[in-house]
Design a protein around this nucleic acid. Structure first.
Length: 274
DNA sequence: ATCATCCCCTGATGGC
DNA sequence: TGCCATCAGGGGATGA
């Protein structure tokens, strides 16, 4: 489900709910594995610790406490919500977090593609799922058109897969890849080695633009994505190509095409994107 | 190292 | 209504 804007929206929602000073009092697992087995015993170490911050790296949420970092990826269907009592729990509620001030959160994840892990504070960047990740799209020093051009130069990959590769840059998933490529006028199937520096400049600008707008809109709600507060994002109303197969292109009126690239649906305009 | 394919899992949807 | 096939926003594992 969630790409960078949705994860950032969740992060901000959690920040509002978990205002400091606040302490994690208890962590309870209703199930032992998500995508990977969860470190059941190790996770207990966060209980009793004050929550210091909730950060984001790419599509990962990082709950930082006094001595630990709770690492969470929402996979495709992960959500956090507040609950009051155990009678409010539902199917696929896998992890319960109890805080001071009687605040309780639950992690729900039907498909269980999510991740929950714990490491000592300060070691999160060395975590095996995080250490190879590329720069954040908004990191203007680390991520430039030149650096993208350089990495793309001798690769044989189509551009859509390239910008969704978390080692290249973090946070772009299937929806925003399609949207950014439309805005930049580049075909998803174009080979990255063929993209000129000015085009990389334009594409990077459009990636930042679409992600910023989506964050501003509280993310996109398709199927059941919810913000941590339970409200819905509305950026789905601004999709220019995603999910619009056969609808007229907003620029040229030609029908939007759907093509599977790398096993994922890709929407584009064959006239506006070369 | 890089690339394509497969797969994890549940739920929604559409065709018959 | 039921049944079956297909598809879904992520990304690790695998083998070429």
């Amino acid at each position: 489900m969630p790409e960078l804007p949705e994860v950032e929206t969740v992060r901000r929602g959690l920040e509002r709910i978990l205002e400091p000073p606040i302490k994690i009092q208890k962590i309870e697992l209703k199930r032992k594995e998500l995508r990977f087995p969860m470190p059941v015993k190790k996770l207990q170490a966060v209980s009793g610790e004050k929550l210091r911050s909730i950060d984001r790296i790419g599509k990962y949420l990082l709950f930082k406490t006094e001595k630990h970092c709770l690492i969470n990826h929402l996979g495709m269907t992960g959500t956090w919500r507040e609950f009051k009592a155990s009678k409010d729990l539902k199917r696929h509620d896998h992890v319960l977090l109890e805080f001071s001030k009687k605040i309780k959160l639950v992690y729900n994840d039907p498909r269980r593609f999510g991740v929950l892990d714990l490491c000592p504070l300060g070691e999160e960047l060395d975590h095996k799922l995080i250490k190879n990740m590329g720069p954040d799209p908004f990191n203007i020093e680390a991520l430039t058109a030149e650096s993208l051009r350089m990495k793309a130069k001798k690769r044989i990959v189509v551009v859509k897969n390239f910008i969704m590769d978390q080692k290249i840059l973090t946070g772009v998933g299937n929806i925003y890849a399609s949207e950014a490529l439309f805005r930049a006028g580049i075909r998803p199937s174009k080979n990255v080695s063929q993209i000129s520096l000015p085009k990389w400049t334009l594409l990077l600008e459009k990636i930042r633009e679409v992600l910023s707008e989506a964050i501003e809109a509280g993310g996109s709600t398709i199927s059941d994505f919810k913000q941590a507060g339970g409200s819905q994002g509305y950026f789905q109303n601004s999709f220019k190509v995603y999910g619009r197969k056969d609808e007229p292109c907003i620029q040229c009126r030609k029908p939007i095409r759907l093509k599977t690239i790398g096993g994922r649906s890709s929407f584009y305009c064959s006239h506006c994107q070369k």
